[in-house]
Design a protein around this nucleic acid. Sequence first.
DNA 1: CTCAATTTGTTCGTATGTATG
DNA 2: ACATACATACGAACAAATTGA
Lengths: 276, 276
Amino acid sequence: MPAKPKAQTRPRSADARPQMFERSPIPLYIQVATLLRNRIADGHFRPGQKMPTLDALEQEFGVARVTVRQAVEMLEKEGLVSRQQGRGTFVSQHMRERRWLHLTVDIESLVQAISTHVPRFIAFRNPPALPALLPGDGRLAPDYQPLLSVQYRSGEPFAVAAVHLERTIFEKAPQEYKTRTALPLLLQREQADIGRAQISIVVGNAGPETSERLRIALNSPTAEARYIVENRAGLVIYLAEVIYRGDCVRFDIDLLRSAPAKQAKRHPHVHEADGA
Amino acid sequence: MPAKPKAQTRPRSADARPQMFERSPIPLYIQVATLLRNRIADGHFRPGQKMPTLDALEQEFGVARVTVRQAVEMLEKEGLVSRQQGRGTFVSQHMRERRWLHLTVDIESLVQAISTHVPRFIAFRNPPALPALLPGDGRLAPDYQPLLSVQYRSGEPFAVAAVHLERTIFEKAPQEYKTRTALPLLLQREQADIGRAQISIVVGNAGPETSERLRIALNSPTAEARYIVENRAGLVIYLAEVIYRGDCVRFDIDLLRSAPAKQAKRHPHVHEADGA
DNA sequence: CTCAATTTGTTCGTATGTATG
DNA sequence: ACATACATACGAACAAATTGA
């Protein structure tokens, strides 16, 4: 045997990742696939267009040919591209509009949007915990009715809602609250006594139950919206955590309070009384 | 000797994942680590408390001992837990408050919050593309000045901003716009002529440049906020895409846009929880 | 002090997945 | 397609430290 039958191949430790990918533990080919998928989604690659050659991609990302090939293979299985020997890889579809859920965040628009959603209520044994209060929030009532539901749109689940409704308000119309979305009902029935309504939005990641119910991967990104409604006395009468799939939702917020005429009946807060 | 010392070992194809983890291509031990980290973050496991034994976790998640051990090892390297042979694993710190950037989304609060941020401007060759307009947006001006910056907080980058400022407005005070955050300046200088201001927020994932600039993993979740400001004639004078780290930001929105003067008293504009 | 139970640490063998050239 | 290297994951057995009886 010669000293070096195939010379100094020096497989660079097989996984010394290119800089670009180094911060992520996710398999390389999946990261590459995600990059390419994003380029299709944002129109960088358009339907019918030829994708860069394997060589080009290999060059650009600094990965092995097999790796980028594996990535393209994923996209083909998803139906996003089609490959042809000798010709190249072509973008087949425009990705269907991902962010189809547009929530305009003011009270009327929101209520209107929410009323069109279809909730399926879920039985539970251990009632879900109340979301934590933030500084500036009002005080808690002694008892809340929990209501768990999954929101569907054409058969696909897109959000899970864990609602906590102040007990006495729930008791006023339990059958309604148990079958319909609570927020529109609440605002309709208690309109005169609403003192404060706020949403807080964070980017989260799906836990085991959520990922199961939304049929998404564990820890995939979500938008968590925490709704809080207080009456004029500063009592929290509604506290909900709604977890949306991160990839389908958009929140639109008007920065200038374009106060429609209706909002003229707004009532000022009276929080000074209880030492805010 | 019992009948089956090692019996039917049947190594179940080495990676036939338990149901719970099946939807994710991420290595198992990292998924488990994330679950445990979340439990520490949300107070399910408290500082000083003993974590479940390896055996228990192994049982709960249906993974091998070595795997769960690898997960705990990650947490130890992060300084979240400490392990002692023969005793167990203990939660060492309360996780520092992750979401320290609280953006109250109304124009005054937002401007005030943004003015405290420290931008470092970035040179660029290819000017960044204009974010896409949405239905309902105004019309575009013929020319915009792009401004790229990274926002820092105690040395850590938390957002990248790609601002497009209408050319003639930029030319009125180029030096100022090149050194300070544009939005507060703009609203101050053009206050009388603002016709519309809106934010749209989506959950996104960091592309190559963003992940590099924010020093986060490629494709890790982000909050993308698209700011648009139009003058009274419906001309888009400011269009910005700000990409925040997904794990540090919270958006607070008042649904009842009540009178700003009083609101200011109750909600401090930005409360930044102690970062360190 | 010893013993046993508990709990983490270590190692082996095997199978498969990822990534390179 | 192949040879190579390393990472991931499994199951099992054993070693070492801690605790309490």
